Amino acid sequence: MLFLLSSFLVKYVTFFNVFSYVTVRSILALLTALIISLAFGQKVIDWLQKLQIGQVIRNDGPESHLSKKGTPTMGGTLILASITISVLLWADLKNPYVWVTLFVLIGYGIVGFVDDYLKVVRKNTDGLIARWKYFWQSLIALIVAFGLYAYGKDTSVTVLVVPFFKDVMPQLGVFFILLTYFVVVGAGNAVNLTDGLDGLAIVPTIMVAAGFALVAWATGTASFAGGSVSFAQHLHIPYIRYSGELMIICMSIVGAGLGFLWFNTYPAMVFMGDVGSLALGGVLGIIAVLLRQEFLLLIMGGIFVIETLSVILQVGSFKLRGKRIFRMAPIHHHYELKGWPEPRVIVRFWIISLMLVLIGLVTLKIR
Rank of each mutant, 00 (worst) to 15 (best):
Q49P: 01
K50M: 10
K50L: 12
K50E: 12
L51D: 07
Q52M: 14
I53G: 02
I53W: 06
G54K: 12
G54C: 13
G54E: 10
V56N: 10
V56E: 14
R58K: 04
R58Y: 02
N59T: 09
N59G: 11
P62K: 12
E63S: 09
E63D: 12
S64V: 05
S64Q: 01
S64F: 00
L66N: 10
L66T: 13
L66C: 01
S67E: 14
K68M: 11
G70C: 14
G70H: 14
G70P: 13
T71S: 05
P72K: 11
P72T: 11
P72S: 12
T73W: 07
M74E: 05
M74Y: 07
M74G: 07
G75N: 11
G75Q: 11
G76T: 07
G76I: 09
T77A: 08
T77R: 01
L78Q: 08
L78E: 07
I79L: 11
L80N: 13
S82E: 02
S82R: 04
T84W: 11
T84M: 14
I85W: 09
S86A: 13
S86K: 08
V87Q: 14
L88W: 10
L93A: 13
L93N: 14
N95A: 09
N95T: 08
P96N: 12
V98W: 06
V98S: 06
W99P: 06
T101Y: 01
L102I: 04
F103N: 01
V104F: 06
V104Y: 02
L105T: 10
L105I: 11
G109R: 10
G109D: 07
I110W: 07
V111T: 03
F113V: 10
V114N: 03
V114Q: 02
D115N: 04
D116M: 04
D116N: 03
L118F: 06
V121P: 00
V121A: 00
R122A: 08
K123H: 01
N124P: 00
T125K: 11
T125M: 02
T125W: 00
D126A: 00
G127M: 06
G127I: 09
R131V: 06
R131C: 00
R131H: 03
W132N: 11
W132R: 11
W132G: 06
K133C: 08
Y134I: 10
W136H: 05
Q137H: 14
S138V: 02
L139K: 11
I140V: 15
A141M: 10
L142Q: 07
I143Y: 05
I143E: 05
I143S: 06
V144K: 05
A145R: 05
Y151L: 15
G152T: 09
K153P: 01
K153W: 08
D154Y: 04
T155S: 13
T155K: 09
S156K: 08
T158Y: 00
T158L: 04
V159N: 03
V161D: 05
V161A: 05
V162I: 15
V162E: 09
P163R: 04
K166Y: 12
D167A: 15
D167T: 15
V168I: 15
V168H: 07
M169N: 08
P170Y: 12
Q171K: 15
G173L: 11
G173M: 08
F175M: 13
F176K: 02
F176N: 02
L178D: 02
L179W: 00
L179A: 03
T180Q: 03
T180F: 01
Y181S: 03
F182E: 07
V183N: 02
V184I: 15
G186L: 14
